[in-house]
Structure formats: structure tokens, C-alpha cells
Design a protein around this nucleic acid. Structure first.
Lengths: 221, 221
DNA sequence: ACCTGAACACCGTTCAAGT
DNA sequence: ACCTGAACACCGTTCAAGT
């Protein structure tokens, strides 16, 4: 690998690619150093330890969250635009699902930015500060959960044919369950033959998240 | 440690305790073997590898999910009872938040049981099979997310005083953000002085989850 | 059937040293 | 300021061997 001068940003960018391609567990100090054409210990100059490196990757990835929303729109529409922007970025960088569970997100500037916008909007919706923060967490976790539970998602480390086999095995284990004990699951397994409509999945998911906020907001206001 | 004869269940139980007390990362084959008073390789007789061990722990913990619900109640009430039962168990075993992200849940019998019940109920609510499964995923991820984002939650590895210091540091980093750029976050940080009302947090969270399902169901029906 | 001992290829991290 | 080399205490896992 080419070994130019390292930068925090360059290291984070490479690590992000590696994590999206092969899963977060592929991002080891030693492996990443090898990809960067450098000694493992070189990374410790730019990041205090592995936790800080992971935080740097998350911060780097989350900085791409940009909601195009019209401040004159009602808060519901603006909130939806924010959630859609968030889901879009997490779909582009699936390693964020693992990353956001592992790192202390509140230390990332890009996360503070998004939280701040959400808090402002939820204030308009009639929530107090504490409630707003809880609702914002619900939305973030929901967005992460949607991508993590995306139909047919398999470990990032698998190649194309391996992934197909993985899905087949998954369907088979569900189909082989006792039809007396688990009739609904067995019936559902049969629907897995056809590829799922991902856009419908995400539309429903985002609807669920926002309908939750709107339902609770109405009750409050 | 006492070294009686090992069982799959006994190993899973011990591992669950260790994971809840010190975090899932404390559950290594070697560490667990030491706690059980046995050689690391002994565990490989009962579990094919570490993934299967983690699945066993999750299955063991999830088997405690028992919703007391009245079949004559409307589906909304029954669904709420199920979500409440799920949240209760995850709160009792916080390592489930990490565990359920890592393992292939659909291979766990106790998970199939809960999924089957949820699918039946969501059918009553007017959802098709595929949609029901997506909604069930939303609820599961939501329950996990609620516990994972519980206010003031800190790494399980920290002891009492360490946890307090961790929370103090966390509040300080948020308070020190630029009040011009992040006014809402800085204002929120000040509310962190008082201990949060966890029951209000979980009530709101569960309301959000169910309001989402009810809102989308109404639109469909 | 159930468990051990030794070995292998990995980790993250520290510390002294080089330029 | 930026990076290297050697070393330490950890991992999961295999394989042959013991009872």
C-alpha cells in the first residue's frame, strides 16, 4: 500500500471503508496499519487508543448527515427530513449500526450538531428539554435499528455467493421450526423466497418512527 | 471456583451473570472457563464456538420473557403487554442490548416464540405477514434501544464511584460545547444535574413505540 | 462422554529508540 | 513532530492426548 503522510481524517476514511466492506471487527489497529502501509504504532500518534479511533470514524461518517429542510414547514415535515437524512447516511455506511452502539456518541461534534437540531425541532412540537432528548434518542436508535434489521442483511464479511447461501440457510432454519408451535414464523419464512422491497421497508419504518412522535406529541399538546 | 460437572445451561447462566456485571466484553472463553473452574477447551465440548455460546446466553436470557396478557383484550393492549415484558427482561439483563446486536437471534428458540406471538397479534391489527415481521423488528429494536440509551447508563465495567465520575465528565463535555453552535445541547446538559426519572423515561419510550404501530395501523385499516 | 496441555495466529498497548 | 521495533499480556481455536 502507498504510504503517504498520515492524517486523522485519512485514517478515519480508510477505516470507514474497511469497516463497511468487511465489518467493524475487521478494523483492528494492526490490520488498518497494514492497509495504510504503516506500522501499527504509527496510529497511536494520531489516536490515543482504539476507542478514540472508533469515535473518529463515527464522527467522520456522521458529518455527512445533511437534512435539506424548509424552516417554514411544520415540525413534522422537518423532523421527517432529518430522520430520512440520517437513515440515508447509515445505509451508505452500514458499519455505523455497530459503531453507534460501541462509541460514546455524545463526544462526537457531528452528533452534537444533529442532536441540537432535533432538540430545537422537538421543542416546537411541545416537548420539554428532557423529553426532547429522550425522543431524539428514540429516533436515532430507531434509524440505526432499521438499517441493522434490514431484511436479508447478512454479516458484512460475506461475499456475494456466501451471502446467498447464508440467507438460504436462514430461511431453512425458520421453515424447519415446528408448525404447531410457531405457525406464524413458518408461514413468514415462506415469504422469504421473493426478494424484499427495501424501499417499502424503509418507508414503513420511517412512518412508524414519526407516527410514534406525532402520536405522543398530540397527546401532550 | 467450584468445579462441578458442566452443563450448557450452567455455562450460559454463569456467562449471563458475568456479562451483566462486567459487560459482554468480559465474557471471553478463557475468563469464563476460569470462573467455572475449568480449562478453556472444556467449553468447546458444550459449545461449538464463541458465537454459539453467545447465542446460548441470549436464548437463556430471553426465555424469561413472559407477557401476562388477556386474549380478550384488544390487540393494542396485548401488544403493549408484550413490549413491557420484553423491556422488563432487557432491563434485568442489560447485556442483552449488546447480545441481540451480535448474535443471529432468529436461531434462538425463545426468540422464535416471541416473534410468533407478535406476528399473530399484528395480523389482528391488519398487517400482512411481511409488514408484521417488519413491525415486530421495529418493536424489538426499539425495546433494545430504550435500554441501551437509558439516561445515565454507563459501561457495565465501571464500579459505583467510577460511574459517578463518568457521568460528571459526560455532562462537562456537553456543557463546554459552544453555546452559540449548540444552544439546545448546552441547555440540556444543565438538566443532567438531577437524577432522571427512569419510570417516566420508559413510559414515554413504550408510548412512542406503540403510538407508532397504532398510527400506522389506523392508516392501513 | 468429557476434559486437559501445548501450540498457533491473532489482538491492543507501552516504552524506548530512531529521524 | 512523526514513526519504528521489540516486548507484554491478552484473545479464539485446533489437535492430539488423557480418563
Amino acid at each position: 500500500m502507498v504510504s503517504e503522510r498520515l492524517t486523522r481524517a485519512a485514517v478515519a476514511e480508510r477505516a470507514l471503508c474497511l469497516a463497511d466492506a468487511e465489518g467493524l471487527e475487521a478494523v483492528t489497529i494492526r490490520r488498518l496499519a497494514q492497509v495504510l502501509g504503516v506500522t501499527p504504532m504509527a496510529l497511536y500518534w494520531h489516536f490515543k487508543n482504539k476507542d478514540e479511533l472508533l469515535l473518529g470514524i463515527a464522527d467522520h461518517a456522521l458529518s455527512a448527515v445533511k437534512a435539506t429542510r424548509d424552516p417554514s414547514d411544520p415540525w413534522q415535515a422537518q423532523l421527517r427530513a432529518m430522520v430520512e437524512a440520517l437513515v440515508r447516511v447509515i445505509r451508505e455506511h452500514p458499519c455505523l449500526t455497530a459503531l453507534l452502539q460501541v462509541v460514546d456518541k455524545h463526544q462526537a461534534a457531528s452528533f452534537a450538531r444533529a442532536t441540537n437540531d432535533a432538540l430545537a425541532l422537538l421543542g416546537q412540537a411541545g416537548f420539554g428539554l428532557r423529553e426532547s432528548f429522550w425522543v431524539a434518542s428514540y429516533l436515532l436508535q430507531g434509524a440505526v435499528g432499521l438499517v441493522a434489521s434490514e431484511p436479508d442483511r447478512c454479516p458484512a464479511s460475506l461475499t456475494g455467493p456466501e451471502a446467498a447461501e447464508w440467507r438460504r440457510q436462514r430461511r431453512l432454519t425458520m421453515e424447519k421450526l415446528s408448525p404447531d408451535e410457531f405457525p406464524m414464523v413458518v408461514a413468514f419464512a415462506r415469504t422469504l423466497e421473493d426478494a424484499p422491497d427495501l424501499e417499502r421497508y424503509y418507508d414503513l419504518g420511517i412512518d412508524l418512527l414519526l407516527a410514534g412522535v406525532e402520536g405522543v406529541a398530540k397527546r401532550n399538546g
